[in-house]
């Protein structure tokens, strides 16, 4: 829909805009804020996890948090409504369930990160938790009716179109706090870059840094999952784009800048998703990849070139 430029400016600077324009501007504003927060969280979490696991293919969902969230949503939607525990279909309950699912897996992962000796083990645990959750989810989905499955599919797709102030506002403080905390874990992460043994010789508490990094990442991913569901690609690509552009591995730079690039990518993708084929809307997860993959490819070629 077309909204006059001056109305948009007016609304942004606090002037009253009447009627439909106000509604539309509000709708766009909330999803833009959601994309900013979610994209920044994913970018920062991706940078932290790639650095911690020293694995360039680690993405924020490697900890199994989005799978846990999906499982909780599936259980609430399918078992919950089937057993009559909650109303037939209650979006608020589903949001809460999604958040609780993310929180539960986050806590589990953080606890394990403190107990487990190796990071590889942690990755495997995260991945296995993910498989466990998606297996249970499939089981729930197969045994329920078509319409519930359809609803569930939408609930587990990443999208910013769904954004609501009530959700964004309650997640925002946690997300901002976690983003600030990610700055604090950047320096200890640098020490871990050369391996845990090397880090230990520098006097850093390896265990504390690892638990801290996992906690920050889990919190960021949870915020993003609650706001927008699992939006792919952003968390994987943003840190790479930053490292290639800045030619540095220094987490004090890559973590905050990945947040910025992630936010940027998410907002651009969202704009593309809702305008490219308007009035139709494209799934944002498809757009992030379609948009982001060529950019990262171009950066790779520019940085390293061909043999």
């Amino acid at each position: 829909m077309r909204v006059p430029f001056e109305s948009v400016l007016g609304a942004l600077f606090g002037f009253r805009v009447e009627g439909l324009a106000a509604t539309v501007i509000d709708l766009r504003l909330v999803r833009t804020v959601a994309a900013l927060v979610s994209g920044a969280s994913l970018g920062a979490a991706g940078a932290v996890l790639q650095s911690l696991f020293r694995n360039p293919l680690a993405d924020p969902f490697v900890l199994g948090i989005s799978s846990g969230s999906s499982l909780a949503i599936a259980a609430t939607l399918i078992a919950g409504t089937g057993l009559g525990l909650i109303g037939a279909y209650d979006p608020q309950a589903l949001y809460v369930a999604g958040a609780l699912g993310a929180l539960a897996v986050s806590l589990a992962v953080v606890a394990l990160s403190s107990v487990l000796r190796s990071n590889l083990g942690l990755v495997l645990v995260g991945v296995m938790l993910g498989y466990l959750a998606s297996g249970l989810t499939t089981l729930l989905v197969v045994t329920s009716d078509v319409e519930r499955v359809r609803a569930f599919t939408f609930w587990t797709l990443g999208t910013f179109s769904a954004s609501k102030w009530s959700v964004v506002n309650s997640v925002l403080p946690i997300a901002v706090g976690s983003l600030l905390a990610s700055l604090l874990v950047a320096k200890p992460l640098n020490a871990l870059l050369f391996g845990e043994d090397a880090a230990a010789t520098t006097g850093a508490s390896v265990r504390a840094s690892r638990v801290g990094a996992v906690a920050v990442a889990a919190s960021l991913v949870s915020c993003s999952v609650v706001i927008s569901g699992p939006v792919g690609f952003v968390g994987l690509a943003a840190p790479h784009a930053v490292r290639i552009l800045l030619k540095t591995e220094d987490n004090r730079l890559t973590v905050p800048l990945s947040a910025l690039v992630g936010a940027e990518l998410a907002v651009l993708s969202d704009i593309a998703a809702r305008t490219l084929m308007s009035p139709l809307e494209l799934p944002v997860t498809a757009v992030t990849s379609l948009f982001g993959a060529p950019i990262v490819l171009a950066l790779v070629v520019r940085r390293w070139g061909f043999r």
Binding site: T23, V24, S161, R274, S278, E281
Partner: peptide
Amino acid sequence: GRQVSLEEFVARAR
């Protein structure tokens, strides 16, 4: 069926 953006829906269905 087709997926439409929320703002398009609001604009047309209100």
